[in-house]
Design a binder for these strands. Structure first.
Lengths: 389, 389
DNA sequence: CGATTTATCTTCGATCTCGAAGGAAGTTGC
DNA sequence: GCAACTTCCTTCGAGATCGAAGATAAATCG
């Protein structure tokens, strides 16, 4: 097993390291511009970071009309992060370097209904295996710096505790963060999966400080980035699955109300509807495959789901006025879904709100939540004094 | 006319001054706790601020078990802010001290359709009269430090320019901030009225960092405070007037779509509906009076409006998960409206979102927008280096 | 009443940060 | 090929900030 030291970072060093890690700065000059520190102070801190082995100087970058910058990178031996994204039936797990880039990512079947202890211990065992194979062993191993996971339910921000999850029987009030922290004496992050996805996506949308990131998979979720930071509200922000939608039919949702969006437009609902038509599918991905094959029933259903989602989004887009709406989750691969969302939003929203609005599929793909976990974890690791991520 | 000097504030002084001005700190010790600065640094900066006449030491505060703090206050001669809230037919104008507290507030009839030049010049004339009477004249006058106004339409954040306002014919694209800045060589703030109201209200809700502030008056607007800061989006955030609502009837809104919330629940719509029943009213305040008198038609209409608004809010509350929903604007004085909003939200929202949610009428009252303008202006005045408010 | 505890505020040396100045290493234009 | 310019980075003194220690002032309690 790898070492477990906290990063030796003091004062302004964390800020600088984060800028390099986030790929936002590559030279001392860029660091000075972005951090607001004086160039001289940056030079001093960078020198210390190089001495302590966290940063390395590597070649030179492109000139912008003057002397070439000396390119800075995080040392690959500075550390790794272990991150996971727990879904209802599958889990993605991986290691990231301290720039937040994936070293290795694996997907495993994982039945979350086995309960928190079993699932979390299994998770940690997989992490240990990954670390052994990709971070080395013994004193020369790249040290583990933080552990994070996404869960498919609401998370109380301060405690890292799951609250009232509808898809996670046995997990209610379980202190996930505390459990993991007992095994890893390190910064631990536990967060809702849609929120992590939003953070991961945000890194791929520079200049877009206000994002709505829709997760369209088995369920429907949404993560919200405001001013470049994740918006949690009181821990439940981003829920759009239980909005009442206008349809001809009438369905009762698991929440007890009728005509919730989730009952019509979630992957689970679509699969159930197709099963009613004699087409048995297992996962939302199978549904996307049918759409790609041009199966009319599947396409019609998906398009209708997109329209319903889009109508809900009109309200939220007018209200929140984001720079972009990003659609992720397994259903985002179905082009008709995104077209339908786009059509509904552009038709009904105010021109002022849609003037520069982008509505697009994920730029990050399936690892968005893992990358988001990395980004938040990095903040925690690099500023141990600051408030929790 | 008063002097027009910028405040002589450097470095950390602005932060300290803002904490005192905002009423969040009253002693050096509190300043140290809230600012994060060392107590010694605070003492130095406070000494400078007292020397320059911006702060005064005044008596001592209550003990918390040890030595009594020496209470700090802003000097009343440090300066004044001139603020206004332009409505469709009336304008509120006033002077605030640098703590953001009102010195004088007046309401005048004002027809905004006379166009920007006429209205703004009139506005400035009123300001000058107020300054003469309440800030003194000549070299001993309390200097004017900033000018701000709210307008009933969308404002482009960076330019202080009105964009596509539906109720302000002749104002489209007019550079309001620039026009005022030509008359006052000072920090100038121009902002949407609902946004200002939200900021003003936020000061009265300490510990509530995420607020939705509904303005229910002639029109319907909403201001959004996220993480203690005003959320503007791309300048249009907070619009809820053009959400489609479910009703029996069918009305076409000025925006060209049918069944917008504004067409059923705004003060203008309610007054029009009552006029159709033979009851002629001029302003939303008259409507509130009828409700207070127990006129059944008025009460039923207002209650129905509250229900429609509440149904729209359910979506937004689930999504944004605020700490509180505050209802302001002239219609907020009608208790049935707030009850109906509350009933709709509590009935339909997720328990997790409403668990600790407060839904309440304004704590600040009719001056909310003026106080909000003061708060934002103070930020601009006290941190001339920082980004625009 | 005097000792103890708690809180506020100041003094002082060490450390951090800044900004100006200048050296280093490129590009651009004649 | 050479001067002028731009950008990157470092050096160095001035000033800002910090933290520890102590002085000051009041509440608490035997």
């Amino acid at each position: 097993m790898s070492g477990k030291d906290r990063l030796p970072v003091r004062g302004a060093q964390g800020e600088l390291l984060r800028l390099v890690a986030g790929g936002r700065a590559e030279s001392r000059a860029e660091l000075a511009r972005l951090s607001g520190l004086a160039a001289s102070s940056v030079s001093l801190r960078v020198e210390e970071l190089i001495d302590s082995g966290l940063l390395v100087e590597e070649g030179s970058g492109g000139s912008r009309g003057g002397r070439r910058p000396r390119r800075l990178r995080l040392s690959p031996t500075a550390g790794v992060l272990a991150v996971a994204d727990l879904g209802a039936h599958h889990a993605r797990l991986g290691l990231l370097d301290l720039s937040g880039d994936p070293i290795v990512v694996e997907e495993h079947p994982c039945d979350i209904t086995r309960g928190p202890e079993a699932v979390l211990d299994w998770l940690a065992d997989v992490f240990d295996g990954l670390l052994e194979r990709h971070a080395g062993t013994g004193p020369s191993a790249t040290p583990l710096r933080g552990v994070g996971t996404g869960v498919p339910g609401p998370v109380e921000p301060s405690a890292g505790r799951v609250v009232s999850p509808s898809r996670m029987p046995g997990w209610n009030s379980f202190p996930v963060a505390e459990h993991l922290r007992r095994r890893y004496d390190l910064p631990v992050l536990v967060e809702n999966d849609a929120n992590l996805m939003a953070v991961g996506e945000a890194r791929a949308w520079p200049g877009h400080d206000n994002l709505m990131v829709l997760k369209a998979g088995t369920g429907i979720g949404c993560g919200l980035v405001v001013g470049g930071r994740l918006h949690r509200g009181r821990g439940a922000a981003g829920d759009i699955s239980h909005v009442r939608v206008r349809t001809d039919a009438s369905a009762t949702c698991s929440c007890g109300h009728s005509d919730c969006l989730e009952a019509y437009a979630s992957g689970a609902a679509l699969i159930a509807a197709l099963a009613g038509q004699g087409m048995a599918l297992e996962r939302p991905a199978d549904l996307v495959a049918r759409v790609d094959d041009g199966v009319p029933e599947a396409t019609a259903l998906v398009r209708n789901a997109g329209r319903l989602i889009g109508e809900v989004l009109t309200v939220l887009v007018n209200f929140f006025n984001p720079d972009a709406v990003v659609v992720g989750g397994s259903l985002s691969a179905a082009e008709p879904l995104i077209s339908a969302v786009r059509a509904a939003v552009y038709e009904r929203c105010l021109p002022l709100a849609t003037r520069d609005l982008e509505i697009a599929a994920t730029r990050v793909g399936r690892d968005a939540a893992l990358l988001g976990a990395g980004a938040l974890l990095l903040d925690a690791v690099l500023s141990p004094d600051q408030a929790r991520v």
